[in-house]
Design a protein around this nucleic acid. Structure first.
Lengths: 173, 173
DNA sequence: TTACTCATGTAACAAGTTACATGATTTA
DNA sequence: TAAATCATGTAACTTGTTACATGAGTAA
């Protein structure tokens, strides 16, 4: 048995997201995966090559992903999730502590600072953010007209987040 | 002029949070700051010594924080925000791109995976997370009875986040 | 004085980032 | 064939993590 090394730690958020994405599109390549991450709305999440390739290599070394060569001269590999990968993914998805944590929210982390500013400083700042949020919301509204399934759910969740932020701004600007 | 080295990059989220916290409690020490971060609800945010001490040293070296020795033999330093620090903090707080980004939300990043599971797998998983959220919400409700100012706003925002999640679970379990 | 807690810090490591390098494939 | 783009990857760096070390103050 080729001995997939036992992982010591839980999956990182990136690793979980990669496993989940590969599972939804079997035979996916690292390049395609990066494309998907690059259009994600998160700026904390660049989907950089320096993150994705090493992460997929780690997952393969741990026996959670399997790769088959596509046959081209670039050595492109098509990935799929192994049985062990399915199990790890289930554990990741069901990790209640992680799933319910507040995560990292740049809006929320700025709120205390905003509240200490004078009205004269705060009002224009919040107006600018409000404006950017409104623009984003209308873009998401367009997306919702055509998007299906996962993309639709993702857009809906983002929209709800921004609406909550807009409500907060309206009450505090 | 003692030449505070020019910073090349914007403040990290941790640096912004530190500057903001120091500004709200002048003369604060790294130790007190860590205590504050340690009780924060984020598990992505441990407020570890290995992050806080180096970050405060960086901010001091950049001329954004000033330190005065307290006089005890431990070399405890009391920090305050300089004029340059105020400016950097204002730029950080008003960075609309960062402020409106979706951040890192472990709940949202798991949603696509949850949706691909069978009802038999998904239902108990979501019930467990729902239960944990309800517990947390009632704790936050208690907090709100006594908390004031910043702590109150933070708790309110967290509560609203969890309630949105609970609504999503109710609609999708 | 012994033990506990306060407080500052470092070392080794983990996992991202940007920027660059390299070669394969496709299109004009 | 030349140029553009597809695709894989590496190198240097940044900033976080955990775990440990060290010593100061304080209470029994």
């Amino acid at each position: 048995m080729p001995a997939s090394r036992k992982r010591k730690a839980a999956l990182t958020e990136l690793e979980g997201a990669i496993l989940s994405a590969v599972r939804r599109g079997e035979g996916i390549t690292p390049y395609r995966l990066r494309q998907a991450f690059l259009v994600s709305p998160s700026i904390e999440w660049s989907g950089s090559a320096g993150a994705v390739y090493p992460a997929m290599r780690r997952l393969k070394a741990a026996g959670l992903l399997a790769a088959t060569a596509s046959g081209d001269a670039r050595g492109t590999e098509h990935y799929s999730v192994t049985a062990a990968g399915e199990a790890a993914l289930l554990a990741w998805a069901g990790d209640a502590t992680r799933a319910m944590s507040v995560g990292i929210d740049p809006f929320r982390s700025r709120v205390p600072q905003w509240l200490t500013l004078s009205r004269a400083q705060r009002a224009p700042m919040l107006r600018a953010i409000e404006k950017a949020l409104v623009v984003r919301c209308s873009a998401l509204g367009e997306t919702l007209k055509t998007a299906h399934d996962i993309a639709r759910v993702q857009a809906t969740l983002e929209l709800e987040l921004h609406r909550a932020r807009l409500r907060w701004i309206a009450a505090n600007k």
